[in-house]
Design a protein around this nucleic acid. Structure first.
Lengths: 326, 326
DNA sequence: CTAGGTGCAAATAATTTGCAGAGGC
DNA sequence: GCCTCTGCAAATTATTTGCACCTAG
């Protein structure tokens, strides 16, 4: 992923020459936001330079797409529009049929389902398009929307951090409770240590979140960009809930293992998608730590089973334990 | 929803004249399957009639779209394709970039998420497009696929029935178990009756499924068309699982209530989308019966709480019970 | 000097439209 | 006879291309 503008403009698809015209077009294009048609761009360019040909704009647009600077999107209008990919994660679109504006969002849950469908039909997917056509709030109610979209990389970071914070918060609660109900002192120590680590993660994430807020004071009021239910709902929160209903040490470990595995996947997946390099680093680092937690829990689980094996059988058949610990 | 071909061809958008040319074009179009471009259709028509103009085909295509006979789809090729909507539920597409064929599927889970996103952004959605671009199995491996797509209405019915059968099967198991563990004789009777009803549903659904198989002997081997995890996973199966872990009568009722509510919704939603009128009728009838079950369980639950209220408090705070029974 | 970049005009490609004639009710 | 359908050819729209010229490395 490219992160700076200068890097981007230096890119060439198959080797190319620097030229003032191309540079001029790219600059004007990158300065805009939203989805421009080729014609929109021609108009914009013409304001600064009369002697630019439509063909050059088309050629430059194609060049930008090849170089990964721009993405060609099709809103079914019979012509293409272009959006720059500079610090913009891939996303889906809500398209207003009335005002012809489009709004962006990302849904990991939809992405996951799309992947499932593709794999069920043995289709190797390279890209997917999700477009919701309809009427936007503004066009329906007539009043101004509360907040406009900001930079997508910031929104992505904001939402990913919110999810991460919720995850860590429930992780903290989970390990706290687990430590309290664990009778075995060695096991209790493990849970206490993990709780401490989750606490550290939590404060690091919160700090980062606040940094983002400083960059864009209105950030919190902007609409949700990243939709993702998988982490916040499915992980530690549910685990903590199950702890409350009463489990033995072994079951607590199994729940922890499942949670950490999900948590690790979450940080890895989202870390890779961050366009903001600092946020990316935090996420990837956490992904690694969560993996270590996971390994620790698995070791503990195995040790526990071994110790108990002499005395009594586990409550459930071995297969489920093996599955959880693989 | 129109169900017969004659009804369809009689449709007119804003009043129009019957004309042999239009009729001819519509007939040829409806005889095809897959996604035709305007040009494909012109070629097909020209085989029967040399004196048909491209403009007329375009005009007829537009007329069919307005009349709801055809749907205009955009695969980003720079031109539109058309598919007929006769006995074809709305669906999404997998598009092979190599052979340029497209395959259809439907995912309720994706649809639900799309609705959630739209509502979170206060966008009123009228339709949505989901397209997965990539390479199909045939193009990737070189060998022929095991089975080709059949009629979409049959596939929809097949998959909806499979889900319904799975749901009823786990419902049967759930009520059977619930009856076995319920101590209160009145409650036991309720569960036994419900188990009997689920058994009846099950045999009716299985019979219908077998009827479909007779219509298309290869039906079972065709790829999944309707993807839906909500019902089979989330409902009775999980409920039965929880019963196994031990619950009291009251909790069993609550689980039953949740399951029946989901089940009712499932039959209602899918019944409405059936293009096959017999299947539709079965589903809507079941939806109604499941609603009655739901009401019965709620009445039982309330009666039980009332009876117990004098003796002891329920295990969980009232709020969750009230929520489940509302 | 030379591979690309650029402008202009012409070409393409899908689709729409103006208009005059044809045909059903 | 009126109203709509139809064919034909021309128009429109978005995009691409051929070709001669220009310019940076």
């Amino acid at each position: 992923m490219t992160t700076t503008l200068s890097e981007l403009t230096r890119l060439k698809p198959t080797g190319g020459k620097r030229s003032s015209k191309r540079e001029q077009i790219v600059n004007v294009f990158l300065r805009q936001e939203g989805h421009l048609s080729a014609d929109d761009l021609v108009d914009l360019i013409r304001r600064e330079d009369q002697r630019i040909s439509r063909a050059t704009v088309y050629r430059t647009l194609q060049w930008m797409v090849d170089a990964g600077i721009a993405r060609k999107v099709d809103f079914g209008e019979g012509r293409f529009r272009f959006e720059h990919s500079y610090r913009q994660p891939r996303h889906f679109h809500l398209i207003c049929k009335t005002c012809h504006r489009s709004f962006e969002f990302l849904s990991s849950d939809i992405e996951a389902l799309v992947e499932e469908v593709a794999s069920a039909r043995s289709f190797s997917a390279s890209q997917s398009v999700v477009q919701i056509y309809g009427t936007c709030e503004e066009c329906r109610t007539g009043r101004q929307p509360s907040a406009v979209d900001g930079h997508k990389d910031l929104l992505f970071a904001r939402d990913a951090l919110r999810i991460a914070i919720a995850t860590e918060r429930s992780g903290l609660e989970f390990y706290g409770r687990a430590a309290r109900i664990t009778r075995d002192p060695r096991g209790r120590k493990v849970f206490e240590d993990l709780a401490k680590e989750e606490k550290e993660h939590l404060s690091k994430l919160t700090a980062r979140y606040n940094e983002l807020l400083q960059r864009d004071p209105q950030l919190e009021s902007r609409p949700t960009f990243l939709f993702f239910k998988g982490a916040a709902h499915g992980l530690f929160a549910e685990g903590a809930d199950r702890l409350a209903r009463g489990v033995n040490d072994q079951q607590a470990l199994l729940i922890g293992i499942r949670c950490e595995r999900g948590s690790h996947r979450f940080f890895k997946k989202y870390g890779e998608r961050f366009e903001d390099s600092e946020g990316k680093q935090i996420f990837l680092e956490f992904a690694d730590e969560e993996r270590q937690h996971l390994e620790l829990l698995i070791r503990e689980y195995r040790a526990l089973v071994k110790r108990q094996g002499h005395r009594r059988r586990p409550g459930r058949p071995g297969s489920s334990a093996a599955r959880a610990a693989r």
